[in-house]
Computed example of a mutant assay.
Amino acid sequence: MIGSQLAQQTIYNGQRVTSASSFLRSVIKERRERLHIVGRAHVRQIVFEEGEDRRKRASGVIYVRDDVEVKVRARKEVIVSGGAVGSPQLLMLSGIGPKQHLNDMGIPIVADLKGVGQNLRDHVYAPVPIHSPNLTEGIAINDNVLFTSAFQYLLRGTGPLGYVGVDAQVLGRSSHAKTRSPDIQLILLSAEWTMANIEANQNNLNYKQEYVDRLRKRGEEHDTKTISNFLISNGLLKPASVGYIKLRSSNYLDHPVIQPNYLSNQKDVEIMIEGFRLLEKLEKTKPFKEIGAKMELSALNCGDETQSPR
């Protein structure tokens, strides 16, 4: 283990701060002539034009707002900042990407770039339920704490509701680490995991119905609605598994095909297991013993023990 620290949070007056609220809203009024922000707009395509040297350059974009297409010309350049999913999708819709894939989608080719949409490396985080019978009342954010803290938050912006729910992290290096930087991250989330919030967030977090049914059955068998008192996420910081993003069709409204290939590389599996071994060491520490904190892996139907490959 390298060490631990309190989680850094971007919060101001009890509210989570975004890039927009931090850097845009404060200057919008004084820069109206130079900064134009269009809301409810979806960019459909980057426009390319051929110059005198016969080289194609991005000259603008076409976006759709309220079912109306608008073409905007760029004086200097077009900056694509749609994220790890949106950027490659927009590039391929505009004709930049693997030639064969664009041909399959019926999209005219602007540039044959095989790397567009490739080398997707998404971080895997496994939520680990922690059962803690001796936990002090009020530490975990459960339904009772949410109710009693509502007025504190509304009046002063403080209390349990005035932060994002991520408390601390532990960083570690696995046996596969080739540098001094960590490749294991354990994140503490002080939120009680109950059937009520699982069912409430089933659609938002895309829980499978069989998963929800299994947790409900376990709760009935143990006569409890609490799955865990708090969570610790075991995560990969440097995944070796490589995925890809492809277009589902030439329609910009269709979600792209996202194939992360999670844990397809055995190295990632072994590092995840070492993350669980690190959690086992935390179970043996004095603070964990005082509150009786232990991993409850059976809640996820993955058994009580994880076999180590070493």
Rank of each mutant, 00 (worst) to 15 (best):
I2H: 11
A7K: 10
Q8V: 11
I11A: 02
I11F: 03
Q15N: 11
V17A: 11
A20I: 11
A20S: 14
S21H: 05
S22V: 06
S22Q: 14
L24S: 08
S26D: 09
E30D: 15
V38S: 12
V38H: 15
G39Q: 13
H42E: 12
F48S: 01
F48R: 01
E49S: 15
E50L: 03
E52Q: 11
D53R: 04
D53K: 03
S59M: 08
I62H: 03
Y63P: 00
Y63R: 02
V64M: 13
V64H: 07
R65L: 06
V68N: 10
V68Q: 13
A74G: 05
E77A: 12
E77K: 13
V78S: 06
S81E: 12
G82R: 05
S87L: 09
Q89S: 04
L90C: 08
M92L: 04
S94R: 02
S94D: 05
G95P: 02
G97Y: 00
P98G: 06
Q100N: 12
H101P: 00
N103P: 06
P108V: 02
V110P: 04
A111R: 12
K114V: 10
G117L: 00
G117T: 00
N119H: 07
H123E: 10
V128P: 03
P129S: 04
I130Y: 00
H131D: 13
S132W: 06
N142T: 07
N142G: 15
D143V: 07
N144E: 14
F147P: 04
T148K: 10
S149D: 13
Q152P: 07
T158Q: 14
Y163M: 10
Y163F: 12
G165E: 02
R173M: 11
H176P: 04
K178P: 03
P182S: 05
I184E: 00
I184A: 03
Q185W: 09
L186W: 01
A191K: 14
E192L: 06
T194R: 03
I198P: 13
N201Q: 14
N201F: 10
Q202E: 15
E210L: 07
D213N: 14
R214V: 06
L215V: 14
L215W: 15
K217V: 07
G219N: 02
G219R: 02
E221G: 05
E221S: 10
T226K: 15
I227S: 03
I227F: 06
L231S: 12
I232Y: 04
N234R: 06
N234L: 07
S241Q: 02
Y244A: 09
Y244H: 13
I245F: 01
I245V: 13
L247W: 00
S250F: 01
D254H: 01
D254M: 00
V257H: 10
I258G: 01
L263M: 14
D268F: 01
E270Y: 09
E270I: 05
I271A: 06
M272L: 15
I273G: 03
E274M: 04
G275N: 06
G275P: 03
L278H: 08
L279K: 05
L282H: 09
A293V: 05
S298V: 10
L300D: 05
D304S: 09
E305H: 11
T306Q: 10
S308M: 09
P309Q: 00
